[in-house]
Amino acid sequence: MHSLLLFLYRYRAFLVFILLQFASFFLVVQNSNYNRATFFNSTNYVVGNLLETSSNVGDYLNLDKVNAQLNKENAALREKNIALLNQIEENNTADTVSNFSFINSKVINNSVFLLNNTITINSGSNEGIVAGMGVLGNHGIVGKVKRVGKNYSTVVSLLDIDVIVSAEIKNVLNLCTVQWDGHSPKHAKVLYVPRHYKLALGDSVITSGYNAIYPAGIPIGIVSKIDLPDDATFYTIEIELINNFESLSLVEVVINKDLPQIDSLTITIEE
């Protein structure tokens, strides 16, 4: 017993080192789990507040850029609105109510150069946000809500090497997968496109309807590089992301009104 204590005392520094490393790795592993409520992230009140103040200061510098972006988006939406109104008049159907509604929110913290990038936004459970909801930017998808605090939430960015998104290539193929490769924040990869499909540069990649997070048909990117080695089963496709993740400022959180129903059906199937 005495020699054991002596041993522990002699190597106390090394033992504390090992202990703290274990604690760190425990935190790393725990942080990568979804839906685990932890206090120590940027949904925390103090942390969120500080980041929001800092982002408010920075916002003034980007105001003109954001305004130009919003103007452009407004114009596009107005155009779409008119086209849809015409369509409704033609068809005269009452069945045009959407299943999706949106919550506007502001990005207060954002990273694009890590391998698991996260975004912090300034709305949380008070606004009705729940973990797992999709997040859209001005031009296309941004990510998925990971943790929700009272006033702040963190979002797993599309720029996360562990995130995969169910997608389709418009007019070509109706199911493939988009995943980020960890390198440039402007590009991502499209996986599992079999070699018999005919692709062209400039084809647009959009979300498929096979998920309950994003509405179908939301843009993700545009095909910018196609490669088909002779021995490969699938294409190697690179897309240029439509959203500029480096300058995200306003986002919309997607509420799918059918989600509870879809979830309960999935659970019955699993049982």
């Binding site: 760190s24 790795f25 935190l27 992230n41 913290n109 990273s111 890590l114 963190t154």
Partner: peptide, 10 residues
């Protein structure tokens, strides 16, 4: 905590 990378810097 601020960069949402819990455990990495630690």
């Amino acid at each position: 905590i601020f960069s949402n990378t819990l455990g990495v810097h630690a």
